[in-house]
């Protein structure tokens, strides 16, 4: 049981959603943009999340977009992860999404909800960081387009009334070779020790990581290390590991030392796969 009450709104337009948000704020209440809502429901039950007004966005057309638009892939923030998988417009994202939670939960968890979420994995963001995708954001000030590398710094940095509407990705990224690896402590369910997504671009390997630190990231320093041609693979891996941007987690899933060991092996494997053949 969720031990608090909230008002429930189901706007049909973005303008209506923004207006409800503003009105609730003006009344001193705490509004909450809701798509899958799994985080509010599960954390709310144990009083780790709270809202006075839930604004359910699923009836708004723009947040349900799922299409090719010229040279771009347009994905709405309120698409369920299974809908993203079934559309398969961006194969790396398909793979990444398919390893989040479980199939039934992914019928409810949404793209925007996962990226905006409070828990530190937020793996759905990894492909968008790699592909220099653009976030479409609306607020009272209007529509803004921001690069994911700009707006996602550890977490999605939105102002109070800003709403993530869509993610736009150039189609060229969807056809590149990719690797996605999720390593758990054991079995095939549960949170990861590390999740690594990588794309082979014209300029070398791009790599983004979740589960290693307290936030998902793409690190230029890591990529520079990994792409140091003329250097042995062990040195490249070492340089890549030196580029980790924050403290490595040490928790019930695994120690920091073990996570580094696992990540090193994953990087070695993905270099081999993306560059072809055995890397020495």
């Amino acid at each position: 049981m969720i031990p608090f009450d909230f008002d429930y709104f189901r706007p049909k337009t973005l303008q209506e959603a923004l207006q409800i948000f503003r009105e609730q704020m003006a009344m001193g209440k705490k509004p909450y943009y809701f798509s899958g809502g799994t985080e509010l429901i599960t954390l709310g039950r144990v009083q780790l999340a709270k809202a006075d007004a839930v604004i359910d966005l699923k009836k708004i057309n723009e947040v349900r977009a799922c299409r090719i638009d010229g040279d771009h892939i347009v994905l709405g923030s309120c698409l369920a992860l299974t809908e993203v998988e079934e559309s398969n417009l961006f194969p790396l994202l398909t793979k990444t999404a398919s390893e989040i939670a479980d199939h039934t939960s992914r019928n409810k968890i949404t793209l925007g909800g996962n990226i905006r979420g409070g828990i530190h994995y937020r793996e759905a963001v990894l492909p968008f960081l790699l592909a220099d995708s653009t976030a479409v954001i609306v607020s009272a000030k209007g529509v803004t387009f921001k690069k994911m590398s700009e707006v996602f710094q550890g977490s999605l940095r939105l102002e109070n009334d800003e709403l993530l509407v869509q993610l736009i990705t150039e189609r060229k990224w969807a056809s590149l070779p990719f690797v996605h690896v999720k390593r758990r402590r054991q079995w095939e369910t549960g949170y990861p020790l590390v999740t690594v997504a990588a794309l082979m671009s014209d300029n070398g390997i791009r790599v983004a990581v979740s589960g290693l630190c307290a936030f998902p990231f793409r690190s230029e320093k890591m990529e520079n290390g990994l792409n140091s041609k003329g250097t042995g693979i062990e040195e490249r891996i070492k340089m890549a590991l030196d580029g980790i941007p924050a403290t490595v987690l040490s928790d019930v899933e695994g120690s920091a030392e073990y996570r580094m060991f696992v990540l090193g092996n994953v990087l070695r494997d993905l270099v081999s796969e993306l560059e072809g053949g055995i890397v020495v």
Binding site: Y8, G36, G37, I41, T42, R45, K58, T104, N107
Partner: peptide
């Protein structure tokens, strides 16, 4: 009651859903 076990699974518009992860009003 946390979306992990699946014991509360029902179908909504013929898709499996965990009813502990869904508001009735939805």
């Amino acid at each position: 009651l946390n979306g992990d076990c699946g014991a509360c699974t029902i179908n909504v518009d013929r898709l499996p859903m965990k009813s502990c992860l869904m508001l009735a009003i939805e």
